[in-house]
Nucleic acid binder design. Sequence first.
RNA 1: GCCCGAAUGGUGGAAUGGUAGACACGAGGGACUUAAAAUCCCUUGGCCAUAUCGGCUGUAUGGGUUCGAGUCCCAUUUCGGGCACCA
Length: 922
Amino acid sequence: MEYNHKDIEPRVRQAWQNAELYKVEIDHSKPKYYVLDMFPYPSGAGLHVGHPLGYISSDIFSRYKRLQGFNVLHPMGYDAYGLPAEQYAIQTGQHPEVTTRENVARYRTQLDNIGLSFDWNREIRTCDPEFYKWTQWAFLKMFGSYYDLDADRAMPVEELEKRFAEKGTQGLRAAAGKDMEFTAEEWNAMDKKERNDVLMNYRLAYLGNSMVNWCPALGTVLANDEVSEGVSVRGGHPVEQKQMWQWFLRVSAYAERLLQGLDRIDWSDSIKETQRNWIGKSEGAEMKFRLDGRDDLVLDIFTTRPDTVFGVTFMVLAPESKYVDMLTTPEQREAVNEYLSSIKHRTERERMIDKRVTGVFSGSYAINPLSGKKVPVWISDYVLAGYGTGAIMAVPAHDSRDYAFARHFNLPIIPLIKDADVSEASFDAKEGIMINSEGPELNLNGLTVPQAIASTKEFIEKSGIGKVKVNYRLRDAIFSRQRYWGEPIPVCYVDGIPTPYNNLPLELPEIDKYLPTETGEPPLGRAKNWCTPEGYPLELNTMPGFAGSSAYYLRYMDPRNHEALVSPEAIGYWRQVDLYVGGSEHATGHLIYSRFWNKFLFDYGYIVEDEPFRKLINQGMIQGRTSFVYRIKDTNTLVSAGLKDNYDTTPIRVPISMVTDDVLDIEQLRGWQKEFANAEFILEDGKYICGSAVEKMSKSMHNVVNPDDIVERYGADTLRLYEMFLGPIEQSKPWDTHGIDGVNRFIKKLWNLYWRGEELLVKDTEPTAENLKSLHKLIKKVSADIEAFSFNTSVAAFMICVNELAQQKCTSRTVLSDLIILLAPFAPHVAEELWHTALGNEGSIFNAKWPEFNEDYLKESTVTMAVSFNGKPRFNITVAADADNKTIEETALSNEAAAKWLDGKTIRKVIVVPGKIVNVVV
RNA sequence: GCCCGAAUGGUGGAAUGGUAGACACGAGGGACUUAAAAUCCCUUGGCCAUAUCGGCUGUAUGGGUUCGAGUCCCAUUUCGGGCACCA
């Protein structure tokens, strides 16, 4: 029998399917293990060779855990809501569900072709009402909750209402949009509408009117993680800031817990760091500045450098600050208005690119609470309204932004740190000895910066000037999208008051066109009878993409449950995801939202773990190798890469399928696009050589390699092994089909250990010591490598072992049986085939047991060690494997070469690593 | 600007502080063959060499710790990623 993947692979997969091999149920007799891939958005382009990288590695891990006796949950599904299907619907009128269904079918075929061990009985789709019922359910739970900072958890809003009725806001510490103070009497006197407004300030899912990222091209608002450098992450359309009523999730309430939780999970440092940056905790103080001649007002500011108060030479308000209007004096009114309108036209993007210093004096003065000095209050857009209090104290000597502002407007600069040179730039470092910092009640001179920070904090708390305060950069997530293809938000409006719609699922209605209404309302405004049975209008916005992916990992545990998101039994057994594999691009989106969502459900005891994903592996991207042809400008002549420098050329990307080893298939190119049909070619050595570059793999770059083609030519096992062999999982690397032959050759060599033509080579012979050594080296290496997610080195270890066993002409059934079990997670089809045909076993190889490692087979009685000296010849000495410092000395001297070299010298020190290397100091 | 991470042959990449370059690709040479494909064997960091013994050098750069450093420490350069008028 020859190795023939086309015969083996479909047959083996069919057998798995018939046996329902990957179906998994709760089984208390076995330990559980939950391996999850980030589920894909089924795009029209299908999978390219980069996508399966993560799927293959998680599949290897799942199969390995299974062989080790774990009950492995390894599910898959589809993140089915998304913009491309909707854009396609707008263009063609085809319902996004139809497109989605087609794409899902294509994905399924492609995934199956790779031989992944998913339990498809548990498949979920976010657009399925049975699934999004629970997305909506969680949203309503959040709507009905507030965050109690004393209990440090989410609590029902009813508790809050009770509390307000009894004692108002007194003693309440809760996450809120703005600080509120009222008494029980005031609360009880409020009408329904007023109470609703108050509660909105506390709800974890709330309707808020604030600055949002509005993308006119997409016709919707976007969350912060969906915007990068002023343009949308999807499509790259400009995004502007707009004041709008939108649904939000109060993610900020969980900022501290999201930060603390990072210390308890096994994620890469880089992704934890990214999340820490995104959460952006800063510890400082809030301080009150009185205003000159105005007893009715104080200015609240936030600073992380309370030690620098004596260096404050001016104050700055954000243009959107509520103080702007109050502090503008009549004389300055005109100048301020002019300034405000001038910056209104600058978009966030423009402000980011062009960081010129602008600002205007308000006319008012504030009083420095520590020095008693009078300082002017300015207005400038370098201060952000949304962070801290929207007002700052400016210390130009020790803050670069304040420094630039002071220089530009010629404001004084007072250095506060000894020997700090502030003639050219500010001194921002938090180090040095304080000077110029003496006031009537507090003297910081002579202290170090950290000491000064601590003393100032203590002083302002004691004197009531301010209080210690922690700020987070993490913003609440905008939760509504003016789009059709998403989960309806289950809220209706009763007399204008947002009210839960509890009859879930609230199904997405049919509409005639997938566009906003003529009056500019979201597409759901086109739905007929979009209201409750009582006639109350339903919300027109839908949920964002991250809604469905925030808790999907819980649903896999119990996907067909109609009564609950997940049953107590299922959550009690599966608990959390043990291993999560996916791209690092979700660091500030999905991976934050999921953690938030999970913590929220945890607060109510619906689930049992505070963190959703115990271990996270971020697979790198596989880039494409793009090929270029070079057209001489203004002609239809293409010049080969080696000669292009002689001409003025434009590079053009051509499909990678027309290029072999950088040589272009000219006839294919002629047939590709009309413009090339009659092109002239300038060749070198009779060939057209293409240029190349490494770029993201995508359709538009014409560099996509389809896994189906690789499977067709080499088989799924070769594809799997090769993708793993390319390099470390977490690293990005370019795809290069060249090396794949090596892996394919390995499988054939492996096959030839079992079969020579029709002759079966496996015999019931006793394994030799050599055989066992080769095998157990492999067991040790592969087991350790899989645990460390180091698959490229395990594939190398297989290659070495198979070469050794081939050389040894190993025929031992026990060795060859263990070998194929070890390989099974990596190359499941060929392993399963040999398990049956060559080894004659019944039942799947995946019901076998992972071979146990035995150290004894690797032990040596003697070991040869290299002795080397600076510049002197090396020689080998052979000693007992367990030699220590004492025995080695004698051995060395009894060794002829060593004795010769050591002639006349004495050994001062001998360093031995048992079984390894020795170094002798003379 | 701040915070992470990385830098090893022609290429992808191996190396618990212990013989750097595993394994694979590519390249060169050879065997088999009428020929080709396939397969197999040898060589393959650089320099020197009496080219079969062997020597020197070498992991971005400069220092340091150590008997011993690709690995640990300090500084520098370059690249990748994150955050960014966040006070």
